[in-house]
Simulated assay, not measured.
Amino acid sequence: MKRFRNHHDWMLLLGLGLLLLTTTAAPAAAKSNLTVTTNLPLTTSGNTRNYLPTGTDDLYSKLPISKTTKVQTKAAVLKNLKNASDSGQTYFRGYRAAKLSNGKWYLKVVSFDKTYRGWIYTGTTDPTNDPTQVSGGLQAVQTFKEQTVPDYVATTTFYFTTPKASTLTYVAPDYTDYKVGRNLNATTDFYQDPLTVTKVGSKQNGRSANLTYYYVNDAAHPQVNGWVRISDVSTSPAS
């Protein structure tokens, strides 16, 4: 067995051994950065781009092209939004689509109440032509569904239930479309006008307990025309 002449020789050999061990045992760090190959606005009708989160993927503030990209909202938080008992504030509207170099697509979304905004994984299918074809962190949903107007409703004259400021008409029922809502802030001045119902529809996905709305026409004051909750009309004029 070779004997070392002095302490210096021993320390030199030990240092060389540690260097060799470090060099051979530690592999080079894998490159984690990706690139964005497509980033386009979604141009189809807004109501083809409404979603609820599935709760399986995080929402990112920026496209996750590196491991340092920050999570905006955790998947566990988004999962609670899927079955939220709200009026529809937590629906998401998609407005951009991006593809990364690994073949994954992400949509940029904003919640109807603007509380949540960011990028979320939606699978490997191109959503730009048909934004309903998503998977991963989003599921496409219908927020409001129209039904056939029953004959007894179509032939009945209605009135606003009470002359109060909180009775509203809507271009689209509240939180069923992004940035589309009130048509009339109050019906106080029109509560004795006769109304006819030309459309019937209901909220979906448990929002507002799938509340039903009537679309009412006011022949005397057409500016009143719009959707109204069925609880806000009756067959007798208020006194």
Rank of each mutant, 00 (worst) to 15 (best):
V71Q: 06
P173E: 07
Y175Q: 13
G55N: 10
T23P: 00
A209Q: 14
K82S: 13
N47Q: 09
T235N: 15
A172C: 04
L19K: 02
T38F: 06
Y91G: 04
S87T: 08
T157M: 07
L81I: 03
I230C: 01
K62Q: 11
T169A: 12
M1Q: 10
P194N: 05
L138F: 08
K164W: 10
S45A: 15
L184G: 02
T73I: 14
P237Y: 02
K99Q: 15
T56A: 13
T162I: 08
V180W: 08
A238R: 01
Q147I: 05
F144V: 06
T38K: 12
A26N: 12
D57A: 09
L100Y: 04
D126H: 08
A186M: 01
G226K: 06
S231P: 00
K74E: 13
A219V: 08
N102C: 12
F4I: 01
A220T: 15
G88A: 07
K114P: 00
D130S: 11
L63E: 02
P222H: 02
D58Y: 05
S101M: 05
T73W: 05
T56F: 01
P53I: 06
T24C: 09
T198C: 05
L107A: 00
T169C: 11
T69A: 14
A28W: 05
P173S: 07
T124C: 03
S234Q: 15
F160H: 10
A140C: 02
L59C: 04
Y152T: 14
V200N: 02
L13Q: 10
K114I: 00
Q89I: 03
L18G: 10
V216W: 07
D218S: 04
K74D: 09
R229D: 14
Y159D: 05
S66R: 08
T48A: 14
A97E: 07
L81P: 00
D174F: 03
G123V: 10
A186Q: 14
V233C: 03
T24P: 00
R5E: 13
S166D: 14
D232F: 13
N33W: 03
P194E: 03
Y175W: 15
S239E: 07
T157V: 14
A97Y: 09
L13P: 00
T73K: 13
T198Y: 01
K203D: 08
V153C: 02
L211R: 15
V197Q: 03
G46S: 15
G15C: 12
V149I: 10
N102I: 09
S111F: 03
L13W: 09
